[in-house]
Nucleic acid binder design. Structure first.
Lengths: 132, 132
DNA sequence: ATGGGGTTTCCAGCAACTGGAAGGTCAAGA
DNA sequence: TCTTGACCTTCCAGTTGCTGGAAACCCCAT
């Protein structure tokens, strides 16, 4: 199957598939006579794996590790679990950061009357009423 | 004051200040005889404004708008409030996305025994037990 | 043969910096 | 006076993870 089909079946855009090949995340696809890349079901499975892992927020580098664990029949599930846990920790950090931004913004929004007048607590805050 | 001082007083790294000047986010600093940039208190205030706005997650483009509102004595606070609200909406979207990743990961983590054996629900999931 | 889809390569660009190289400047100490 | 080190200047490259586009080739149907 050529790259368009593989893209359709995996949900990973053709451009991205080539990119993954480029950075060595997936092995170079075999080529057919016309120099078109040729994909088998297995390749598509790997692409789907990547799509899912990326959608869970794993970085491309993480994916490299996950893929090699995936292929390693001797792997310890503990290693996978550790990767997932550190991913969760990272997510928690990001959520906390966003929550804090959100709280600050909501507070400012509430204090801003939001009409045609120019005075605005939001700008006042940005301008330095509080240190960052 | 030269750029190092401005950086120290605003919390914005010198490199970033130059970058902001480059992309036209701040006006080019005046220069002294030795071609060093020269900053006044006001410039530092603007940098602090930017630092704070960035720390609340406003994009550089948003900052452009915020700065022009900041400088506009005729502004309507409603415009600022609208910017802040759309920022909150964006944050909410991101938080929701992260929460969903987190829930999925925690579920997988819980189901993974995490020892020396190779079988692992996390990898099984990635490998396609569920569609993305 | 011609048209419309594939596909190939490569190059550029997005956000928002950050690092580093190569060189000019300045103040202090030996 | 010379040197050393800490500044400053510019410019170019790299980061993350793609995405868009150009120019060219390939394949199939009409």
């Amino acid at each position: 199957m050529n790259i368009g089909q593989a893209a359709a079946q995996s949900g990973v855009p053709a451009k991205t598939i080539r990119y993954y090949e480029d950075i060595g995340l997936v092995a170079p696809a075999s080529r057919r006579g016309n120099n078109y890349r040729d994909y088998a079901e297995e390749d598509v499975a790997v692409l789907r794996f990547l799509k899912r892992a990326r959608s869970l927020g794993f970085s491309v580098e993480d994916c490299r590790g996950l893929l090699s664990l995936y292929r390693d029949r001797q792997r310890a599930s503990a290693d996978v679990k550790a990767l997932a846990r550190s991913r969760v920790a990272e997510i928690d950090r990001k959520i906390a950061e966003l929550e804090s931004m959100r709280a600050t913004l909501l507070d400012l929004i509430e204090r801003c009357h939001g009409d045609a007048r120019p005075d605005c607590p939001i700008l006042e805050d940005l301008a330095g009423s509080a240190a960052s």
